[in-house]
Computed example of a mutant assay.
Amino acid sequence: MSILVGAVLVVLVLALLAYIFTRDSLRKYDLPEGQRFSPADANAVAASAAAVKALNKRLRDASGPLEKMPWSERIHSMRETMDTFFAGADTSSVVTPVDAAGVPAEWVVAPGADCSRRFLYIHGGAFMAGSSKGYRVLTDKLSEITNSAVLAIDYRLMPENKRLDSVTDCRISYDWMLENGPQGPDSFAPTAVFVAGDSAGGNLTLALLAWIRDTRRAAPNAALALSPVTDARFVSPSIRGNLDSDVILRPLAKRLAWVPGFLVGLAARYMAGHNASDPVVSPLLGDLAGLPPILVLASDCEVLRDDGRRYVNKAVEAGTDASLMLWDNVPHVWPIFYHDLPEAAEALEQVDRFFERHS
């Protein structure tokens, strides 16, 4: 009898966990879809498909082996791959390493860029990989198209550090950037300030915006989030729905897809290294009113598509000027592949127009 009672209690506890950790109260933010972009004609469609196919093969060759590696080896390999993937790309900016109040960083300044316009860039990499060096191909382009000095930071990574350490480093860097330019402290008073990040860096960007608002700091003119993580609970429909079509994130998301529904919340808490429902790590779950203009870009076939969609729709409901732009059949954070994909150049053109409107 006691065994039966114990079994019933276990079932009830599991059912309670399933309810607590897998309920999804944000489905109402799955619509509207956002502005969609597709090739204009048959020739463009064919050219795009060929370019995407070639890039996806290169990405699979780079990330495919990760699926079979032990976790510790996987992290090391991820870091090496991200730091060297664009090693041969041409850039024209002057790169200057700096110490941003204890946070390693570098100024990336395109020829002729206005250093009174400052742009904080927060790289992606699942909070465990990525670096300012590995992202120079993108920060160089952002400095050029936004006519600004880009401060690319190297926030502390997991698992050597806590998840919230990355949040702290972004806050410190933002404050430092307001008071320092490429020529030194108070060299130019900022005439415009921007913030952007991709994937994990998109998460940190959106969390930073809420902190800036809540602490009454000088807000950026506008912010950009490329394929951001907005809900660390991993309950957005595309997390599982787009698993097979996401070439880049599949090696990381595949393990989560096998987690039983009632354990997703526990797995999410473990992966976040913090309460996954805290808006500090899940900006979607916070107050999205009173934020600066925000542009979110996402691919229709990536696992984080609905993280971005839900964030924008909730932000618009709260009165924030936010917009979502979706592209078909492109990889996660595709604007960084502007040397390879016509859609990346198109996306960067939209980014340029967005920041120009809010300068």
Results as ranks from 00 to 15, higher is better:
residue 286 G to I: 02
residue 278 D to Q: 06
residue 263 L to A: 14
residue 309 R to P: 00
residue 321 D to W: 09
residue 317 E to S: 08
residue 253 A to R: 12
residue 337 F to Y: 15
residue 277 S to E: 15
residue 266 L to V: 15
residue 263 L to K: 10
residue 300 D to G: 10
residue 263 L to C: 13
residue 291 L to D: 04
residue 327 W to F: 15
residue 295 L to I: 03
residue 286 G to W: 03
residue 268 A to H: 00
residue 304 L to P: 01
residue 321 D to K: 13
residue 286 G to P: 03
residue 324 L to G: 01
residue 317 E to D: 10
residue 305 R to L: 12
residue 289 A to E: 03
residue 265 G to F: 10
residue 331 P to W: 11
residue 288 L to F: 02
residue 303 V to Q: 06
residue 306 D to A: 01
residue 264 V to S: 06
residue 322 A to S: 10
residue 281 V to R: 07
residue 279 P to Y: 04
residue 255 R to T: 11
residue 333 V to L: 07
residue 283 P to H: 00
residue 328 D to F: 12
residue 293 P to F: 11
residue 256 L to W: 11
residue 264 V to Q: 13
residue 269 R to W: 15
residue 314 K to N: 02
residue 302 E to T: 00
residue 276 A to T: 12
residue 319 G to S: 06
residue 289 A to F: 01
residue 281 V to N: 04
residue 295 L to V: 02
residue 312 V to G: 02
residue 334 W to E: 07
residue 266 L to H: 11
residue 275 N to V: 13
residue 311 Y to P: 00
residue 301 C to Q: 10
residue 321 D to M: 09
residue 310 R to D: 01
residue 314 K to T: 02
residue 292 P to F: 05
residue 325 M to S: 11
residue 301 C to E: 08
residue 296 V to S: 04
residue 308 G to M: 05
residue 297 L to T: 07
residue 264 V to I: 15
residue 319 G to V: 06
residue 310 R to M: 04
residue 331 P to K: 12
residue 273 G to W: 07
residue 294 I to V: 14
residue 333 V to H: 08
residue 289 A to G: 08
residue 317 E to L: 09
residue 318 A to D: 08
residue 332 H to L: 08
residue 336 I to W: 03
residue 322 A to G: 06
residue 272 A to V: 07
residue 277 S to T: 13
residue 268 A to C: 01
residue 322 A to R: 05
residue 334 W to D: 04
residue 262 F to Y: 15
residue 259 V to G: 01
residue 322 A to W: 10
residue 312 V to Y: 03
residue 336 I to T: 08
residue 311 Y to L: 02
residue 271 M to Q: 13
residue 326 L to N: 04
residue 264 V to C: 09
residue 300 D to Y: 08
residue 332 H to K: 08
residue 334 W to Y: 13
residue 256 L to Q: 04
residue 285 L to A: 02
residue 266 L to Y: 10
residue 328 D to M: 07
residue 298 A to I: 10
residue 273 G to R: 09
residue 330 V to W: 10
residue 328 D to I: 10
residue 268 A to V: 00
residue 302 E to F: 00
residue 302 E to R: 00
residue 287 D to V: 02
residue 269 R to D: 14
residue 276 A to Q: 14
residue 262 F to T: 14
residue 291 L to N: 04
residue 317 E to W: 05
residue 254 K to N: 09
residue 321 D to H: 10
residue 320 T to G: 07
residue 279 P to K: 05
residue 281 V to I: 15
residue 333 V to R: 08
residue 290 G to S: 09
residue 280 V to M: 12
residue 262 F to G: 10
residue 298 A to V: 15
residue 310 R to N: 01
residue 261 G to I: 15
residue 287 D to I: 01
residue 306 D to Y: 00
residue 274 H to T: 09
residue 304 L to N: 01
residue 257 A to H: 11
residue 308 G to C: 03
residue 334 W to Q: 05
residue 317 E to V: 05
residue 253 A to L: 10
residue 274 H to V: 09
residue 337 F to N: 10
residue 291 L to T: 09
residue 260 P to Y: 12
residue 301 C to Y: 05
residue 308 G to V: 03
residue 313 N to C: 05
residue 261 G to S: 14
residue 292 P to Y: 07
residue 329 N to Y: 12
residue 283 P to E: 00
residue 317 E to Q: 12
residue 261 G to L: 15
residue 309 R to D: 00
residue 263 L to T: 11
residue 258 W to E: 06
residue 328 D to Q: 13
